[in-house]
Design a protein around this nucleic acid. Sequence first.
RNA 1: GCCGGAGUGGCGAAACUGGUAGACGCAAGGGACUUAAAAUCCCUCGGGGCGCGAGUCCCAUCCGGGUUCGACCCCCGGCUCCGGCACCA
Length: 826
Amino acid sequence: MTPYQPHQIEAKWQARWQETRAFAVGAGDDRPTFYCLEMFPYPSGKIHMGHVRNYAIGDVIARYKRMRGFAVLHPMGWDAFGLPAENAAIKHKLAPDVWTRANIADMRGQLGRLGLSYDWGREVATCDPDYYRWNQWLFLRLLKKGIAYRKNAKVNWCQDCHTVLANEQVVDGACWRCDNPVQARELEQWSLRITDYAQELLDDLDTLSEWPERVVAMQKNWIGRSTGVEIAFDLEGAEGPLAVYTTRPDTLMGVTFVSVATDHPVATAAARSNPELARFVESCREHAVSEAVLETMEKRGMDTGVVAIHPLTGDKVPVYAANFVLMGYGTGAVMAVPAHDQRDFEFAKKYGLPIRVVIQPDGASLDPATMTLAHTGPGAMVNSGAFSGLASEPGREAVADALERAGRGVRKVNFRLRDWGISRQRYWGTPIPVVHCEQCGVVPVPDDRLPVLLPTGVTLPETGSYLAQSPAFYETTCPSCSAPARRETDTMDTFIDSSWYFARYTCQNTPQGAANMVDRALADRWLPVDQYIGGIEHAILHLLYARFFTKLLRDEGLTAVSEPFKRLLTQGMVIKDGAKMSKSKGNVVDPEALMARYGADTARLFMLFAAPPERDLEWSDSGVEGAFRFIRRVWALMERVPAPGAVPADLAGDLPDACKALRRTTHRTIAKVTDDIERSYQFNTAIAAQMELVNAMAAFSADWAEGAPDAPRGAVYREAAEALLALLCPFAPHVAEELWERIGGQGLVGARPWPEADAAWLVSDMVTVVVQVNGKLRDKLELPVDADEAAARAAALASDKVLPFLEGKAPRRVIYVPGRLINVVV
RNA sequence: GCCGGAGUGGCGAAACUGGUAGACGCAAGGGACUUAAAAUCCCUCGGGGCGCGAGUCCCAUCCGGGUUCGACCCCCGGCUCCGGCACCA
């Protein structure tokens, strides 16, 4: 008996797959298509368990779909730009491109050793000029359309990374990458008008029926649509009118003051003639570290001396500059209704401003003098002139109508989503393809001069941007007037790279791909991605940007689809000792060590068996042992399989009971595994079912372990073995192929059609029917599958385990579920 | 605070549209093989009571109610944990 030697057979089959280009898909293939994609990795140099899990899941799906007769596109590549390369470059005195290329080579090898079924002919690396040139090409299109634009804006600045961060990249007030507190800075920045697409990005979420609900919810939340009214307040003592935004026009009559952001023009203007106010505004600027920190800050404000005139009543109310009003949302000014907004309430209490109740909740009578909390819920409008008596909900519309009629307001939709700031003051990214000319201003680099190449082989400075310090890069001439000019030295956010790579794979390394960012015909063939798989941590960032870019590509005519990913699977984290595996926690298990000890098949099998894909996976050394044991068990059982010629091919005729039982198990396992994969990717139970089949095969074959089976048993056993290897193939492909070859199978098992369960063998003649009395289990009966109710009832009532519970009473009711149970109610 | 998700043996988990709770695996205990160990194989394995025993009864899916012949599953109320958002007007 040959022992199971994973490394030997894994190397053998990986080489075989590579030689035969087993996973390449090309033109002229008329099978139905399936595009299976896992999020491509950042080439850090070493894969981690999260990668192994992610890619194992994707590989099962890809291999399964192939066996189901699909032409499967399953590519892999590298999200190769980014900060770690720069940090490593400074640390190891290596150019970022050199470091990155070496890492890619290492990781390609590691992924290869996992036996993943990629079409490597389509590999992309985002740091290739042939890739990032298209970032630049698209940027120029967006610039022309006004979707890419430049603005002076308050930005999130990370001191450590020495660069700007998008809102999505600020987590709890800190940098998503290095965890340092983010500072607010005023900077000239390139941005993309993702807000132009806010409504579409929101609406299309409803078409993503095969996305996890929570991801959809998180994106909805992030986009944050609200409907309200923008109201104009005339001003005394300042240039007016002042626009405020509110979602509660029904509370308009309760306005007792107006709050503006400290950097609102009204506040800034008033501060010019009011030193005290100027000091206040200045102190707020110092404190305005980040939006997230504002939350914990005390609410402070100061009267600007400006007076606002209520648009409907003509009442005069003061205008306050308040530190909690955000300039970036709505109009930067809000009408304050202390009785019905908690912040305004606290603010009014602190500064002794009047509180006016205009909404009375059902069955209560609010008194401003005794209120301790604002009433933010619904109620009836009071003290509201003509509106009094209306319920607050319809009141909202009535007030909005009145404002619109009076020309004092207009209904408006607001989004929480902000434009995407994409400038990064870093080296290792896509150069933004524009030139700054004193005469001509911002001039796009012409298409025929793309790509604007990033210099390679460089030595980075300890601080600051290499490009901004490199005259060889930034000194250029204006494409328009040829005068000396300065090249833009900001690079693009690396999230741009990953926002369209899935589309690039469809034409990568084809003649069409050489000429186009995305080839329309090839995109039409493959997009959208049928199955996308990755970590939940990208629920907003990457997945929102990719959706946005898909719409941009569509509007450029590069694809017909509006959504990139038809079905999304977000796999859980790999946990050890109760925490996510991380270097800082010191609880990492190295996949390379795991593979060195047990091989790739064991690593894959354990990852897939220990938990369903969506759930977090608890690492277990002994669980890995278990997976290894299972493979060895399969290995040993295959020694007992008779050669194809040694058994009758036809299994017809009457079989001994034991043979019938094994056939039923075989076909039920096929049905179960297929259903588990098809229905919800329950790989853990799919593997459990295979283990059950293996247990049955072991018992069945125990008595001929040393000899040979008779013909019917040999044939039934061979059928089971062939089915098992086919079912196992997506999960543990190397050992499945090796054993397939050893039992004399034709070709690659992975290239064969997926086994079909024979419906005739899914049912047996006799079934166990549970007998309950008043819903409690009392007996189990073996009954023919097709037993009718009368027969079942008679058998149940005759049972001596049932009789005592009837206490001599006649059954009041009998519920019979054929093939399952009979419940006698007394 | 708002929005999601989860809570089942010692552990990871399973249980289809309400129908045998705990499949499968891990750990543990016992046994076989062995000079011994590893490996492998077999048996037991939610808790408790009664019984010499075959057995048998009760309790048990976070807690409390409800619907139902029957609830891990549906409904109402609560608790705990995890994730996201959070001065967004």
